[in-house]
Nucleic acid binder design. Structure first.
Lengths: 167, 167
DNA sequence: TTTCTAGTTCTTAAAATAAAGAACCAAAAA
DNA sequence: TTTTTGGTTCTTTATTTTAAGAACTAGAAA
C-alpha cells in the first residue's frame, strides 16, 4: 500500500528522484517559459532546474527526467547557455557538467522584457509622427496611449531602484 | 521624373493609397505584434489600421494593401475581432464593414500583459513553497527574485492610476 | 426571382519548428 | 593503445503554423 503510493508519487530514474507534484510544476512553469520564445524542451529544462530538489543536474539527469533525446537535450541546454538562463559548474574528478538556473539573470530578464515593451512605444511614436492631421480624434487617442506607455516605462526603472534600496 | 518618384513612393491599389514609408512601418510594427502570439497576417492588419491615413478600412482595402488572400484576411480579421483588437462600423447604404483599431483596448491590453507576468510570479511562489530546506542559498535567491516580481507588479497598477489622475 | 456583394468555410500546400535516432568525436580512463 | 564517457552534429520525421485558392453562402440589390 505504501509502496503503491510511493510508486504513484515518486519517479526515480537513475539518480534524480522527482515527485508527480514536481513534474506538474515543471509542466506549468514550462508552459509559461514557452511564451517568451523558448522551445518546449528548453522551457522544461529551465523549469526543472527551479523545481527539482537538487539544483545542479547533469545532462543525463535532465535527459532522463524529462524523457528527451540526447540531441534535444544538447540543443536546448546550449540555447539556454547562450541566453544565459543557465550556467554550469564542474566538480573535481568528475567529467560531467552540472547545470543550474541562473536566478540572478531573472532580474535582468525582467528588465529586458520591459525594454522590449518600451521599444513598442518608440515605434508607436514613429507612427504618430507620420500620421496626417486629417484624423484628429484617432491621433489624440493614439497619442494618449503613447503617453501612458512612456509614463509607465519611465517609472518602471525607478521601481527596480527603490526595491533595491529598500531590501 | 516626378512620376518615377511618385511610383516609387506611393502604392495605390483600389482606393487606399499608401506610401513605402508607411508600408515599412507596417512591417516593423507587425513584427512587434507577432511576438504576443499574433500570426503575421493579423499583426500586419493591426499595424495597417494604425499607420494608414484612413483609419477605417474595408475588407478588400486591407486584403489588397497587404496582398492577402480572402481566407487569410477573413481569418485574421475574425481573430482580431474576437480578441477585440479591432472593431468595425457600418455606413448607411453600404454593405461593407469598416474595420478600425480599438485603441482604448491597448490600455487594457497592457494591463493584461502585466497580469500575465504576475501569474508567473504566482507559480514561482508555488515552486518556492515546495522547495526543500536543503538548498538554502538557492531558496534565498529564488525568494528574493519573487519578492522583486511581487513588488513590481504590486506597484504597476498604481502607476496606471496615477497616470489617469494626472492627465 | 435572379444576380451580386461581401464575405466564410473547406481543402490543400508550403514552410517553419521541434525533436528523435544514429553516427560521430574529443578528452579522460583503463 | 583501446575503451568509455559525455556529449555534439547530421539526417530524417512528425507536428504545427500560415496562408492560398476554390467552392460556397446569406442577405441585399436588381
Amino acid at each position: 500500500m505504501l509502496n503503491q503510493i510511493q510508486k504513484k508519487m515518486e519517479n526515480t530514474i537513475n539518480g534524480l528522484s522527482i515527485t508527480d507534484q514536481q513534474l506538474q510544476l515543471v509542466e506549468k512553469l514550462g508552459l509559461m517559459f514557452e511564451t517568451p520564445g523558448f522551445q518546449p524542451a528548453a522551457a522544461r529544462i529551465m523549469a526543472l532546474l527551479m523545481v527539482s530538489d537538487r539544483v545542479e543536474l547533469t545532462f543525463d539527469e535532465i535527459r532522463e527526467t524529462l524523457q528527451l533525446s540526447k540531441s534535444a537535450t544538447s540543443n536546448a541546454i546550449n540555447l539556454l547557455l547562450t541566453v544565459q538562463k543557465i550556467d554550469y559548474i564542474t566538480k573535481p574528478g568528475d567529467r560531467k557538467r552540472y547545470f543550474r538556473s541562473v536566478i540572478a539573470q531573472w532580474k535582468d530578464g525582467m528588465k529586458d522584457k520591459f525594454k522590449e515593451m518600451e521599444k513598442l512605444g518608440n515605434v508607436m511614436r514613429e507612427v504618430l509622427e507620420q500620421r496626417p492631421a486629417s484624423t484628429p480624434e484617432f491621433n489624440k487617442n493614439f497619442s494618449e496611449m503613447i503617453s501612458l506607455m512612456e509614463y509607465i516605462f519611465q517609472e518602471i526603472p525607478k521601481l527596480f531602484k527603490s526595491w533595491e534600496e529598500n531590501r
